[in-house]
């Protein structure tokens, strides 16, 4: 099903003929290289902002696998982000996990949650799918408040002490160091982008796009569309949880805001802004949106209004988002 066909942009042939010089891979690696080099020229403030943006962009990349490529509009992805956030945060505070183990715990929480939730919500489609995902996310939010004894609810809790040092392969990483944080965030984003790219260029990606474009036809070509949608939802939810876990561990704060409806809507907006069903779109969208809020909030307290107006204008004039529009204007090979 495609909830709203207009912003959902098809990808061009995933067709074979891979030459030695893979243009698509090159473009995506170049984008990651630019992010790597940016750390040497940015001021402290932008350096920190970009680290945050890269973690949130990973969330957006994950969201886009379900929304952009499979055509399922979830309004409840905050629950997966929060599963990673709390999975990592609580593993650290309640179970005294180290940073690496806590990160894996967060991912695992997202994997389990998205599998269970997926098996239920994928019985619905269209508007009911949107509502049901939102309701589950709301239940998750209320749970984070209800178990305030552990989560400290709205106020949240701060990670401190040993958990601020990650141990991996015999090396130690100081998570309070801006450089370490930046490069871990970049590594996470790079993995998410490359996973997404490999997925959408594979035969499975072609099936997901087929489901988005015409689910009944996909079924009559022999595809178990339920299983493929579940797969997309689990990949999407798990990547979102990885972003949540990284956010908790890198920025040392876990709070119920991240489980609220706002964090279900944000990835949708980031993806719409950057380009639905494009690999790089979510990153660009997250970056622009972050700075849009940042800059307008300096001038007016009604910054959300300004952001809202900007988004409406965007949907009206660039319904396919930035990368989606570029793709229409000649970069047809961009996945």
């Amino acid at each position: 099903m495609s909830v709203d066909s207009s912003p959902i942009q098809p990808t061009k042939p995933v067709a074979g003929r891979r030459s030695l010089f893979d243009k698509v891979l090159f473009v995506h690696l170049a984008a990651l290289a630019i992010l790597f080099l940016a750390q040497f020229v940015l001021s402290d403030y932008h350096h920190l902002t970009l680290a945050r943006v890269m973690v949130l962009a990973s969330f957006a990349v994950g969201y886009n696998i379900l929304f952009g490529y499979t055509g399922l509009l979830s309004l409840g992805h905050a629950m997966f982000f929060a599963a990673g956030l709390y999975g990592a945060g609580l593993a650290a505070t309640q179970l005294s996990f180290g940073a690496s183990e806590a990160f894996l715990a967060g991912i695992f929480a997202g994997l389990v949650l998205s599998t269970l939730i997926g098996m239920i919500v994928l019985r619905t489609s269209g508007v009911s799918f949107m509502i049901v995902t939102m309701m589950f996310a709301q239940a998750g939010y209320l749970m984070s408040l209800y178990f305030g004894e552990f989560t400290r609810g709205d106020e949240g809790f701060v990670l401190q002490g040993d958990i601020r040092t990650a141990h991996l392969f015999g090396l130690s990483f100081d998570l309070t160091s801006p450089d370490v944080r930046y490069n871990i965030a970049l590594a996470l984003l790079a993995v998410c982008v490359l996973v997404c790219l490999a997925l959408v260029r594979s035969p499975i990606g072609r099936i997901l796009i087929a489901i988005r474009e015409n689910e009944e036809r996909a079924r009559m070509l022999g595809y178990d569309t339920y299983r493929n949608k579940l797969f997309a939802l689990v990949v999407s939810g798990t990547i979102s949880a990885a972003a949540g876990a990284a956010y908790a561990l890198l920025f040392a704060y876990v709070g119920a805001t991240f489980a609220s409806i706002q964090y279900s809507i944000l990835p949708l907006l980031w993806v719409l802004l950057g380009g639905v069903g494009t690999v790089l779109g979510p990153i660009l969208g997250t970056l622009l949106m972050f700075y849009l809020v940042d800059i307008t909030s300096e001038y007016t307290s009604a910054y959300m209004l300004a952001v809202g107006v900007a988004l409406i204008a965007l949907v009206l004039f660039f319904p396919k988002g930035i990368i989606g529009t570029l793709r229409d204007k000649g970069l047809k090979w961009l996945p």
Partner: peptide, 26 residues
């Protein structure tokens, strides 16, 4: 295999991808 009375193809995909989807199943 069934072909639809009302044409049902993946309009936004290439001809190649339409057929590749069928081949992949096999």
């Amino acid at each position: 295999a069934y072909t639809f009375q009302i044409t049902s193809i993946f309009a936004n995909l290439s001809v190649y991808d339409n057929v590749a989807l069928a081949v992949q199943t096999g």
